[in-house]
Amino acid sequence: MCERGRRPAVGGYATMIIAVAVMVLPLVWMVLASFKDMDELYRLPIQWLPESLAPANYGTATQTVPFGSFFVNSAIATVLGAGLKMTLGLMTAYALVFVDIPFRRFFFYVVVCALLVPQQIVLIPNYALAAELGWLNTYQGLIVPGLASAFGTFLFRQHFLTLPRSILEAAEIDGAGHWRRLWRFVVPLSGPTIAAVGLVSIVTEWNDYLWPLLVIDRPEMMTLPVGLTLLMNFDGVPNWGVIMAGTVLVTVPVLAVFFLLQRRIVAGLVTGAVTG
C-alpha cells in the first residue's frame, strides 16, 4: 500500500467509512421501513424515505402479538438467568482457587470441557427431560437448563489467580470465613471482570433463541426473539413495515445499552480472548 505522509490516511479513512456504512445502513433501512405502510414498501422504483413518521406499524406489531409479555419474559429470563449464572460462576471459581482439596484440576476441566459441547447435541435429551419434569412453557424450563456457568467460571478463576494472596490470608487471620472472604474481599476486588462478564452474559441471555424456541410454544410465555418470528406468520406477502417495527423494538434497547456501556462490554468481549 502507500508509504507515508497523507495518502495512507486517505485509504484508511475510506476503508473505515465503508465499514461503518456497511454496518449502519441496514439498521437505518430497518428504522425507515418501520414507518412505511404496505403501499410504500411495495412500490417501484424504491421509496427511500417514509411519507409520515406515524408509528402505525408499531401499533399493529404490538397488537397482533403480545409484545408486552415478550418484553417481561425476556427481562425475567435475562435478569434471573444472568444473575444466577454469575453467582454460580463466582462461587465455583472461588472454590476452584481458594478451597484446598485434591483433584481440583479435574473439576476445573469438568467445567471447561463443557464449553466444547455444542448446544444442538444436548438439545433432544434436554427437551425430553424438561417435558418429563413438566417444565415446558415455564420460567424454570426457560432458565434452569442453561444456567450452569462454564465460561464465566473460567474467566473468574483466571482473575482470582491474580489476586494477592496476602489480602485473603489477612482476612483469614481476622476470622473471616470462606463465605465472607468471597463476598467481602474477592468480589469487590474483581469489579471490572464481573462487570465485563455480566454484561456479556446479559446480552447473550437477551438474544438467546434456540432453547426458548423449543421449550416455549404459548405466546404469552415467549421471549422477544421467539415472539418476533410470530410477526412473520402471514399468509401471502409479508408486511415488512410491521416486521421491521418489531425488529426495531427488539434491537434498539440492546443498541442503546451497548452504546452507553460500550467500553465495559468491549472489555468483556476482549477479556475472554486475552485470558483464553
Partner: peptide
C-alpha cells in the same frame, strides 16, 4: 468506528436475520 463495527455482534440473530431478509428482497 470500532464501537459501530462491533455493534451488530450484540444484536439478536433473529432480528438481524429478519432485517436483512427485507434488504435482500429481490424485488422491493
Amino acid at each position: 468506528a470500532r464501537t459501530i463495527v462491533v455493534a451488530p455482534y450484540v444484536l439478536s440473530g433473529v432480528a438481524v436475520g429478519l432485517l436483512w431478509l427485507f434488504v435482500f428482497d429481490p424485488n422491493f
